[in-house]
Nucleic acid binder design. Structure first.
Lengths: 165, 165
DNA sequence: CTTGAAATCGAGAATGT
DNA sequence: ACATTCTCGATTTCAAG
């Protein structure tokens, strides 16, 4: 249903959705209209959900990233998801298997704001415990990978060496 | 440096980067050219890194999401980041504070493939232990939130109730 | 920031393979 | 069924006020 050409187009669009159909066509050796039709199908089938914009958190002053494991008394998924979704500081929320019930991905400006998030968290009925895993250094964050399609973002940004200038 | 209008534009672009400058202008009460100039500045300053495409993992058969805590003997950050970055199944890698050294976000088709990822992980010199947190249900995953800007994606997708049809 | 104009691109239809 | 070429309308983008 999605062949090698589709996957290559997906990789190219992930890398830069501003590309023109003519450019895409050149890269996969197809006519602009042919690429246009393939992209239309990728959107119609829901594989491509939307075209969006990648915003740099640091440029907005959001320097602190943390993952929070949440324990609850009772199954408070709906309440917790509703509360976390309404909070722009929380980027992800999942229910998980293991010693905790939920896992949150939180991005804030500073540790003070992280404390605020935790405080708000305990306002959700049933939340009894949390363990916060602070990110010290981000290796990389990217969206869904397309197996077999090498993106330039995989090579740029060389591994941050321990020897810093 | 980024005022309320810029943040509203950011929110609108995150929601749908396919919007026309005329549409954006209508929503923030500015001329198309003025919005164009603001967006150009947001890009030039690095706040907007790129325009990309949001790909549905499920539509590509990637149904399993997991977070993997990794313990190491010695500080193997560079080796681990290099190895994980080259693997499209791994979406994020961070070094973290706490009882583990690293945290990975992994998305694969099925548990078998997750086992493959763990197997590969232990090929990195120094990796001695791992603890995998399997995601049972995804509440939501989104990019950087813009405080003060309400997106439609915050209201659609009502909380999955326990009573399923 | 707004207005106005020119070049480019997107999107659809008709055609051919 | 899919790809190609052509065409029109819309958008981007630049210059001037």
């Amino acid at each position: 249903m999605v062949d090698a050409i589709d996957r290559k187009i997906l990789g190219l669009l992930i890398e830069d959705a501003g590309r023109t159909y003519a450019q895409l066509g050149r890269e996969v050796s197809l006519s602009p209209a042919a690429v246009h039709e393939r992209v239309r199908r990728l959107r119609a089938s829901g594989i491509v959900r939307r075209t969006t914009v990648d915003v740099d958190p640091d440029a907005l002053g959001r320097h602190v990233l943390a993952f929070v494991l949440v324990d609850s008394d009772g199954w408070v998924k709906d309440e917790l998801f509703a509360a976390t979704r309404a909070d722009p500081r929380i980027e992800e929320a999942h229910s998980v298997a293991g010693s905790s019930n939920f896992l949150l991905k939180v991005r804030v400006a500073d540790p003070d704001e992280l404390e605020d998030v935790l405080h708000d968290l305990y306002r959700v009925e049933g939340v009894v415990r949390s363990r916060t895993i602070m990110v010290l250094r981000r290796g990389f964050e990217r969206g869904v990978g397309i197996p077999g399609v090498r993106l330039t973002s995989d090579v740029i940004d060389p591994p941050t060496s321990a020897t810093r200038e």
